[in-house]
Simulated assay, not measured.
Amino acid sequence: MSEILHELLCASEKAACIARACRQEEALFQLLIEEKKEDERNKKFLTDFKTLADVLVQEVIKHDLGKKFPGLEKNVRGEESNEFTNEHEEKIIVEVCSTEEETASLLQKVLDNNKAAAKTLARAVHQEVTLKDLALDADNVSIPLDNIAVWVDPIDSTYQYIKGSEDIKPVKGIYPKGLQCVTVLIGVFLLDTGHPIMGVINQPFAVKDPVTLRWKSQLYWGVSYMGSNICSGNPDNKTRCVSQQSSTTGDNSYAAVTSSAETKDVLKALLVVCGENLHFAAGAGYKCLCVIQGLVDFYLFSEDTTFKWDSCAPHAILKSLGGGILNLSECIKSANKKPCNRPHILYNSEEEEAKGADRWANKGGLVAYRSEQHLEDFIDIFTKNLP
C-alpha cells in the first residue's frame, strides 16, 4: 500500500509541475486551450475547455503508474481524451514517449511547431520527482493490484486554471475562486465493489514564494481499507487529519460550502441552516478539500455536474476521517426514516442510457461530510427547509 501511495503522490507532484510549467508564459498558455466537443462538455458552463496540460497530466499519471506497476495503467480512468487537434486541424494522440526528445517532437506537432515550448513541457514530463520526509504508515495494509482502478482529474477547476487569478483573498480560510482552487485529484477504488480506498489531492498553486514568486504545492492523502484508516496531517499519521471539533457555531448552525450555480431553493434552505457560515468556492475538488481541512462541515451540491473523477480522491480521504460522500437526493428521500440507509457513492459503474461525460456523473448531487453524527442533524434540518 505504501508503494502505491508513494507513486500516487509523486505522480500528483509531477502533474503539479506540468501545470505550473504551462502557465509560465501567457503566449504559450494561449496555445494550450482547445474547446471541448459537445459530448465532453460540462453542462455547468457555457464554455468549457480542456487544455494540453490536462491531457499531459493524465497521460503522465497513467504512464508512471504503469511503469511502476505493470498493468495498472489499463485501469487508469480520467476526464480527458488524449486526442488533441492542433491549429492545422491535425488530430494527434498525446502520450508519453520513451525519451524526452521523442515526447518533445510529438508535442511540437500539437504546439504548431513551437520547439521551445515543446521542449519545456517534455522536460517536465520526463523529470524525476522525489518527495522527502513522507511518513506513509501503510505497510501493514495490502491490496490486490488486479482489483483496483484509478480515477484521475488532471486539473480540476480548469476555468480557474485558465483565468489564473492570483490575488484572491480567502474568506474565513476559503478561496471563492483563483488558482488556489485548482487541484490534481487521484483516487483509487475497488473494481468489484466500487468503494474508494485511497486518495491524493495536490494543490499546485497553494503557496506563492514572496521572493522567487514561484508557486509550491500542498499535498493531502488518505487510505481507508479493511478497517485501516490512515491520513496525512499528523506526525504519526494514525489519527484524524483535522480536529474532531465541529465547525458549528450554534445548536442548529453548520458551516457549508457550495457552488454559486446551486438552485435557489437549495440555497434558501442552506441559508437557514448555515446563515453567515455558507460559503461559495470554485472546483468540486477544492470544495471537498475545504471539508477535509475542517474549514466547513459540509460540501453540498444538488446538480448532476460533478463526476466520478471529481469525487473519488476526496471521498477516500474523507472516509479515512470517518466521513464520506453520499448521494444528496437519496439523503433527502431518507430523511427522518429509521433505520436510515445512506450508501456511499460508488465508482465502478456508469449511468445507464447516459452519453459522453454524463455516463460518470454523480446523479442526484452529492454531500461531502466529516461526521456521521453531524450529517444526521444537518440533513434533517436542511430537508425541513426545502419547499
Rank of each mutant, 00 (worst) to 15 (best):
R342F: 10
S142V: 13
G283L: 02
Y225L: 06
I148A: 05
P339S: 00
F189M: 07
P176S: 00
F378E: 04
E262N: 03
L136I: 07
L52N: 03
I4R: 02
K355L: 13
K337D: 08
I201T: 10
R359N: 04
I168Q: 09
C231G: 14
R123C: 14
G323Y: 01
T248Q: 12
D192G: 03
I174A: 12
T193N: 02
A256P: 09
H195M: 11
K62F: 06
P387T: 00
Q293W: 09
K287Y: 02
R77L: 15
N237R: 11
T130F: 15
L213S: 14
H88Q: 11
E330A: 13
E351H: 07
M226V: 15
L145C: 07
N229R: 14
A206F: 08
L9H: 00
C97S: 06
K384R: 08
N75T: 14
Q160R: 09
S334C: 10
Q127S: 11
Y286F: 12
A269N: 00
D153I: 06
L5T: 05
K319C: 08
D54E: 03
F298P: 05
I197M: 01
K287F: 05
G283N: 02
S157L: 01
E7I: 08
S2W: 09
E95P: 01
L318D: 03
E35H: 05
V55D: 06
C274Q: 08
K216P: 01
T239L: 04
N277T: 13
A11P: 03
K338F: 05
L270D: 09
K68R: 13
S224L: 00
I332L: 10
E40W: 03
I93C: 03
F49P: 00
E353M: 15
T120L: 14
M198W: 09
K68M: 14
L366A: 01
W151G: 14
T249W: 09
T47I: 06
K36D: 02
A335H: 02
V184D: 07
N75K: 14
R123M: 10
T249E: 13
D133C: 05
V242R: 14
I186V: 14
Q373I: 12
F382M: 07
F378S: 02
E303V: 00
V60L: 01
L289A: 08
R123V: 08
T248N: 12
I332Y: 00
F280E: 07
L375D: 03
D64I: 04
A138R: 00
A122P: 07
S243Q: 07
T158L: 01
V242T: 14
H279K: 11
A269I: 02
P70S: 12
T120N: 09
G364I: 02
C312T: 05
A361E: 00
D112G: 07
G365Q: 06
Y175D: 04
E262G: 02
T51N: 02
L267C: 10
C288M: 03
